[in-house]
Design a protein around this nucleic acid. Sequence first.
RNA 1: UCCCCAGUAGCUCAGUCGGCAGAGCAGGUGGCUGUUAACCACCGUGUCCGUGGUUCGAGUCCGCGCUGGGGAGCCA
Length: 467
Amino acid sequence: MSPPSFFAESSTMQNQGQGIAPVRVKDLLSAAAPLGRVLVRGWVRTVRDHKDFAFVEVNDGSCLKNLQVVADAPSAAYDTAAALSTGAAVEVAGDMVASPGKGQDWELRAETVVLVGACPENYPLQKKRHSDEFLRSIAHLRPRTNKYGALFRIRSAMAMAIHQFLGERGFLWVHTPIITSSDCEGAGELFEVRAGSRGEDFFGKPAYLTVSGQLAVEMFCLSLGNVYTFGPAFRAEDSNTSRHAAEFWMVEPEIAFGDLAQDMDLAEALVRHLAETVLTDLAEDLSVFTRFVDKTLEATLATVAREPFARISYTEAVDILSRAMAKFQFPVEWGRDLQSEHERFLTEVHFKKPVIVHDWPLSIKPFYMRVNDDEKTVAAMDVLVPRVGEIVGGSQREERLGVLLSRMESLGMNPEDYGWYVDSRRFGSVPHAGFGLGFERLLMLVTGVTNIRDVVPYPRTPGSIEF
RNA sequence: UCCCCAGUAGCUCAGUCGGCAGAGCAGGUGGCUGUUAACCACCGUGUCCGUGGUUCGAGUCCGCGCUGGGGAGCCA
């Protein structure tokens, strides 16, 4: 049972419970023994009223299950309960007793039922399945459904698990800036930031929303040791797909004195740990997705969590794809980037589990990735997972000043624009490596949800910022 | 940004060859002694996405636009 509510004593809300501390439904339903007189607050999912009694299903968001409230007639509690409608907010006080009916262990025998907030008949959520498209149009109400309640509890738990996993391994969380000045971090179009009437004058130079905290966090890696960022990133790309959003969250660990092998080890350990966490700690919420979204989800997650990822070089990947009998729309040729269909073939058809592809052609990767001895490839790696595709992208960073400068030069970049970044290679440079894990793509992996818009509370995509 | 598909009641959808706008669910009313997305009976529901055109007549055919979805590119 969780600790008593912080608000138990200080609540200003007038309730009928005569000072009883409110209890969350999750704690009530998991109780081993009767809890006596309790107070519950939540939202009505459905009402079944009969002549002599009424059942009210109350959900307070703490867990998937509803609490069954029973009100006997004749009583004021019955009159209020029978008149409740789906969506109404209620406060119920009564005795927690073993349920004589089937389907639940406990139920709340209501002494008082208070209508906290009424809900009229034009409430959009009904006691039936709705399409994801419809629920997306009422994003402010969809967390009241079973599926999205479970989704956002899982989202919170995954974020917590990431902090815990990295924290336990000595990684420090660095809050890199949301507003940046570098206009060429090597990834995508930028959103420009303006300050009302002062415009660009506010910072004295153009400012943008960050596309990645990597360059900034590298500096802290070279001072604090192992570090990570975990926060929002923004891309102004006109991407209209189920896997892209203009605002999304990324986890970006950076390993001091680390190489590509350690980078792959950490990425694999993190993804496997998160899959295991969902399977073991979030089984109830996960069941929604196994039942209604993807019947094979648990098997897929078990494979992710418990089998080592395949690891192949880019050159080997090209070899496998060239020999594959599958017909690809796009040609496979050393030096070209892998297409979605190629990624899916590797992870879904060939290996049937997550695959790490490492050592990519230098010509298709950004300036900060470490050049290998062959001078044709860089120490980069992508983690590909079934259904989602690329979930992690990372590399060992180029720590040699001369090599970094010549890479920037050959890409037409001006090192003076990155003075602070280049400085780090001048003053006590060390090998280091890191990666970015797309948080929403991780959520798609662990829930089976196929549209990124459905794992974000209020999704932002081109032409869409309704909420 | 490109290709494809869709838009009809609050929701999910049917609507034949161009000829009076339909069903289920939700909602309302009543009934029901333990229900589980309860059940039974009865009741209401429309800018057929918008706009222009073809036609005696358009939900239906054609053009344009908007919105949503699927796929591609880019990427996390």
